[in-house]
Amino acid sequence: MKKIYSEQELIDMTIKQLEQTSIYEDQYEQYVRRPFRTDFYDDLSPYVQVGKRGYTLQMYERGIQMLNKLTKEEEDVIYWIIEDTIHIIAHLNLLRKYKVDNINTHLKYTKEITKELTTAMNKAFYEIGGIYQEWHEANRRGALENPLK
């Protein structure tokens, strides 16, 4: 029988991977913990429930559950959280760089900005390497978020 890891074990394993990147800082731990919250669901963000049978991947949009999928693979959970966290960090870095907050001032998502975001994410996954880099390059997040696969 495959071991089912606790929320804290998954968080620790995820942080260990993210610490290999040049963009991760301790202040971003909140984004690694966010998928385990149950009091509020951000739109299209990963959420994970740990159960006896495995890990339930969940996603909501405007309060409506869009994904509810069981996996027994902790690597799926870790990758899903890494992908989301790296995207958040790369985006926050762009907001800082261009001195915008996306509330009062807004980032214009030009081809150049999108390329900067993609480049930052690709660099972080390159620094992690291994299966997580391969999955990023193969758009595994899309497969994880497809309820039929």
Rank of each mutant, 00 (worst) to 15 (best):
V77N: 03
D43I: 05
Q58N: 03
I128R: 01
A143D: 11
E116L: 13
I82L: 15
P35Y: 04
N122H: 15
R96W: 10
I88C: 13
E83H: 15
Y28T: 01
P147E: 03
I23R: 06
P35A: 00
D43F: 02
E137A: 13
E127V: 05
T110S: 09
Y60R: 00
P46G: 15
I15K: 09
F125L: 05
Y41H: 14
L57Q: 02
I128C: 12
F40W: 13
E25S: 03
Y60W: 10
H106F: 15
E127W: 09
K115P: 03
K2W: 12
I82V: 14
I78G: 05
Q20T: 06
T56M: 14
T110M: 01
T85D: 14
Y31K: 08
T71S: 11
K2G: 06
G129M: 03
A138R: 13
L70S: 02
Y60T: 00
T85G: 06
I86H: 11
L44I: 05
S6V: 00
G129Q: 10
D26L: 13
L44W: 12
Q65T: 00
N146E: 06
Y126D: 12
Y5S: 06
H87D: 10
E137F: 10
Y79P: 02
A90K: 11
T21H: 14
E7R: 03
I78F: 02
K97L: 13
I81S: 01
E7Y: 04
N139V: 04
V32S: 00
N104C: 09
E83D: 15
E19L: 11
Y132T: 06
K3I: 00
A138F: 10
I82H: 11
I86P: 05
